[in-house]
Computed example of a mutant assay.
Amino acid sequence: MKTAYCFDLDGTLTRQELLPLIASSVGLEDEISVLTEATINGVLPFDKSFKLRVRLLRDARLDWIHAALSEQVVFDPHMLDFIRSRPDQCFVVTGNLDVWVRPVLDRLGIQSFTSTASFEDENLLGIQHVLHKGDAVTSLRDRFDRIIAVGDGMNDVPMFEAADWRIAYGGTHSPNHLLVKLSDFVINDGKALCRLLSML
């Protein structure tokens, strides 16, 4: 049986949320952190919150963003080892903009599903498409017999609904309560998560 592993990026594969790091490049950490927390907890719908956060960050230069992410993003080492041992079966599913998180995704070296943006020179023109995480999972159905989803936030709900196995991960912060209800497992440690993934 061929299995696909779909991982949320922020706070799941990484040990921090990325938008607050991006916001640090333009001095908007507090504003973006509040919106990010409200989105993780399901207080704000992801699409609306994400568009608002992108609007706030539209003046952030792409080179500043890439520098901030390159210097500060840390991956869970156990998950990194798991992914590197199965690169053709592992996928990142993130609502973040492709052009913003490209350096982080390049370090992982696996296929990713992202929201997309249009840029001209170093300037953000707008969002082309906001990723619906359930669509990403559905697109893998013709290649895999089953799909395991790992995430922590409200915007992971569509991914969980489309997957066969669902794991709420609390390694960085407590997973969203609705996500926990949808989950088959709740894990708070990267090593334990990878052990479970290897057994499923």
Rank of each mutant, 00 (worst) to 15 (best):
T36F: 03
R86S: 04
P103Q: 10
H66Q: 05
G95C: 07
A67F: 15
E122T: 05
F144R: 04
V104G: 02
K133P: 02
I127P: 00
A136S: 08
S85D: 13
R86D: 05
I148E: 15
G95D: 05
F75H: 08
I83F: 11
L140V: 04
D106G: 11
F144W: 14
A60V: 02
G153Q: 05
R84S: 09
F119P: 05
D47I: 07
D142I: 14
D135A: 10
V34C: 10
I127V: 10
R61T: 08
D59G: 14
R146C: 10
L80Q: 10
N41S: 09
D88A: 15
A149V: 12
I83W: 07
D81E: 13
R141Q: 12
L35G: 00
N96R: 01
W64K: 08
V34Y: 03
L140I: 10
P77N: 15
E37R: 00
F91R: 06
V104W: 00
N41P: 08
Q89K: 13
L44Q: 05
H66N: 09
V73Q: 12
R102M: 15
R55G: 12
R86V: 04
I110S: 03
T39L: 09
I40E: 02
L56S: 01
F113A: 06
Q72G: 09
K51P: 13
G109S: 11
R84K: 14
V150Y: 00
L105V: 07
Q111C: 14
L140P: 07
H132T: 15
V101N: 00
I83S: 11
A67H: 14
Q128W: 08
H66G: 09
T94Y: 02
V137L: 05
S85C: 12
D98I: 05
D98G: 09
A117M: 04
P87W: 07
D142P: 11
G126T: 00
L131T: 01
I40L: 08
W100G: 03
L105D: 06
R146F: 08
S112R: 01
V130E: 01
V99L: 11
I40N: 01
L56V: 00
K51L: 15
G153A: 11
S115V: 02
A38I: 02
R107C: 12
L97R: 03
H78G: 14
V93F: 07
G42S: 10
F46H: 07
G95I: 08
L105K: 05
L56I: 00
L62R: 02
S115D: 01
S33Q: 13
C90R: 00
T39Y: 09
M79V: 08
R86C: 00
H132F: 14
G153M: 08
T114M: 05
P77D: 15
T36I: 05
R141Y: 12
R141K: 15
L44D: 03
K51Y: 13
V93K: 06
N123R: 13
T114W: 09
F46Q: 10
H66M: 07
T138P: 11
S118R: 02
W64T: 08
P103V: 06
I127A: 02
